[in-house]
Design a protein around this nucleic acid. Sequence first.
DNA 1: CAGTGTGAACAGTTTCACAGCA
DNA 2: TGCTGTGAAACTGTTCACACTG
Lengths: 207, 207
Amino acid sequence: MRYRKIPDETIRRLPVYLRGVLHLSEQGMESVSSRKLGGLVGVPPWLIRKDFSYFGDFGTPGIGYGIKTLIKQISKILRLDVMHEAAVVGVGNVGSALLSYSGFGIYGFRISAAFDVDKRKVGKVRSGVKIEDVSTLRGVKKRGIRLGIIAVPAAVAQQVADEMVEAGIIGILNFSPRYITVPKKVKVITIDIGMDLARLPYYLPCG
Amino acid sequence: MRYRKIPDETIRRLPVYLRGVLHLSEQGMESVSSRKLGGLVGVPPWLIRKDFSYFGDFGTPGIGYGIKTLIKQISKILRLDVMHEAAVVGVGNVGSALLSYSGFGIYGFRISAAFDVDKRKVGKVRSGVKIEDVSTLRGVKKRGIRLGIIAVPAAVAQQVADEMVEAGIIGILNFSPRYITVPKKVKVITIDIGMDLARLPYYLPCG
DNA sequence: CAGTGTGAACAGTTTCACAGCA
DNA sequence: TGCTGTGAAACTGTTCACACTG
């Protein structure tokens, strides 16, 4: 089934698989079946096999998938094998939490710059990163930063996004509760916990 | 097209529409066309019409949709018209950020309880909520809390989830980077920023 | 024989075109 | 005329069954 378009949903599941096999790798395992991996990460075995089949023959019939192979291949597909630097704009509650979040590391990510408008914050250090004035944002291009994280109030989110695009950012993770519009060469992923929380009651039994 | 099963994807978009019409309502508007709303929230007009059509005839041909009607109907469908109380477990960086996040309000949500294992935190107040010892979690049922928020390290996430289920929680928002398994009567939504960030590089141009 | 890889059937979602209404 | 509501077509993703392989 090679040479076919890869579903977005498959891409969405790859990080899930990666985390699962990293976990198994830490425990010293060398191979895993689709059934076992599925049990670990909550995805049915046939879907795992289908997903992996888009990228070639990862597995060995009768045995399963080599864990080292999986880690290497998935990382490569997701382009996590090179280090990515990200800049966060807005060092409030959300921005601070992100700076201290350790989960980025295993995906080859690092927040290496932080910006804020608040003069009192500028110059201080949070989680080892110096806070800079937001007016100097366009300097990030020279520092090799291509990813931006928006952690500012909704009212200024679009403005920050525009500045990021101008500064050469090509991928944005948006934590503000606003849809933002950017040129289509720029990829935006919006994370809005309010949206997710609002969906929850619908699925609950009783009124 | 009434009386048909409502797609999950439609439910996912309802909070997006709601936020859009709330925004328009604040600006004093009384009605909006699918084209205009679509431009605001980033969804194509025909999809908006299709989504709304699952719930009956919201709109008026030639005019559009009444904004007050939309707010009332969407809130009712999502069951946001009643106040929901939530309890957060883990008052670290993520937990603290959630406690101070003001976005829950417009969806009729409130975090009215907070729990932690750290004795030094217990008894203190964050964003107006007193931090309680996690061992008293099962008391939340009596207080009418049915939603739980997991904001603890990955290693103890499953344990906390089990305790939540035992405490009568029927909806869980999971902020830990772990899939958790619960009885199927319980609905879980997992938010994992690492997963989203890991997806981003795949969509970026150049290597 | 256990477990992968995959074509084909199935299910869910989006897009389109247009009838019908204010 | 402008806009909604919707069946049908097109598309995307999931499930299944089983041939095949180490």
